[in-house]
Design a protein around this nucleic acid. Sequence first.
DNA 1: GCATTAACACGTA
DNA 2: TACGTGTTAATGC
Length: 248
Amino acid sequence: MTSASQSVPLWQRARPLTEAELSSIPWLAPLSAAECERAASSMRAVTAQVGDLLCRIGKAPTYWFGVIDGLLKMSNDSAQGTPITFTGLPPGAWFGEGTLLKREPYRYNIQALRRSTVAGLPIESFHELLDTSLAFNRFVLRQLNERLGQFIAAVEIDRLDDTDSRVARGLAALFHPVLYPGVGQLLRITQQELGYVVGLSRQRVNEALNLLQQRGLIRVEYGGVRVLDLDGLRTALFVLPEDDRPGP
DNA sequence: GCATTAACACGTA
DNA sequence: TACGTGTTAATGC
């Protein structure tokens, strides 16, 4: 992984969001006009280059983050022990509310796997919405619930001893329509990046993707993956065919 | 055995 | 040109 080369801290160069960016944010629409206006004007956006850290372990909470475009990873590297990537964060992902709610330091590093546009809602605005907007509370609650389900699934993936199944489910997780509404049928991700997310080499990911394509679950495209059967991808299990078992 | 790294050819943006 | 993909060979646990 390349390292960030940052003369000025990323968020000091933040800019207001464009209209197009604002309209892509899923939790703005249910707010009242006044709430929406206030939130929109307090938000900031940055462009993160490959390797840039959006936030790091131990730093005081500043923003609730949202991926407008690109791909990030949440990990614990630079902490003690072997680096672990917990999840990839594709377009539409909003995260960090746990840290903001508790007003405790960030517990993960968030790093750009590719050039990305990331929005930030300041912690004061986040709490103001939480204190005043029922619609916002509904969004955050649903978000927390869906993510709990996803991390339970992550434990299951980890227990699977079949690599192809792990790739299938790790990929399916990135197509989660509630957590990552910015991802359509086509997820823009390279096989190298997917390798970082699922913890495998690019070559092994390539092999797994081609198997998944053969099974009609996905289509491998240049610089991305198109999902054809999301439910099949979620439940995929690959085992040895019967006639591969040793005879008596 | 299975996955990893390294290396290479080839195609695409 | 720089990047992404598909493949093979050598190496390690």
